[in-house]
Amino acid sequence: MLDTLQRIGAFTLDTLSSLGRASLFLVQVIAGIKSTLLRPRLLLRELYSVGVLSLLIIIFSAIFVGMVLSLLGYVTLVDFGAESSLGVLVSLSLIRELGPVLSALLFSGRAGSALTAEIGLMKATEQLASMEMMAVDPIHRIVTPRFLAGCISLPLLSVIFMSLGIYAGYLVGSVWLGVDEGSFWSQMQSKVEFGYDVINGVIKSMVFAFVVTWIAVFQGYNAMPTSEGVSRATTNSVVYSALAVLALDFILTAIMFVK
């Protein structure tokens, strides 16, 4: 009994201390933003490896998710004779929920884990320490450009996910299942509001981008400098990102879309 209490206490303290370390780390990362912006070439390279290289998985997933959504939505709506609302169903699900969440999860698997592994390996092979000894701050030189690139890339990827998914849904719904094209688009346009649905969806994905990239770079920087430590950090990065995204999604949805 006492043992359990002790373990709970130790766990709480551990969690608090790593949260504290992660926050201090974030402050240092943000302090490097100015020097990163002065060297856009570094940022550009990271935008390539974080953003452009994630494009393929985002495009394919968006297309399939949009098609499935349209298919399932049709099957359900046609029973009520409401298949003209298919466009609304597909677009609202993608914009409010699936676009931001799925692209964040895919992003953490594709780019977040790569960031963690890269930074963790640089730590394990003493590259970060050697930079410090060359009087170069490894957080500003290595971490900040990656962090910024993540924060910029994911919202862009999310928007691409949303619009591609909707078009894929349109192809399945209108071209294959025969929902009237006019009502598909017009219903969608009258129900989806840019200033409310789209903006809130983009805000969601900005929050996810911030959190997922933060977790990824922190796990990498904080990894034990061994091969086992790096692999564990990579796993943690994906698991924590997924949990954080889903939990935050609940909170954000409650704030944004529940009246």
């Binding site: 677009s91 862009l156 928007v159 691409i160 949303m162 591609l164 909707i166 989806v192 509001e193 840019f194």
Partner: peptide, 16 residues
């Protein structure tokens, strides 16, 4: 591509 998607979203999918 990202900005174009946003524009599509604004003009084709939603109302402003």
């Amino acid at each position: 591509l990202g900005l174009a998607a946003l524009v599509v979203m604004a003009l084709n999918i939603s109302n402003l």
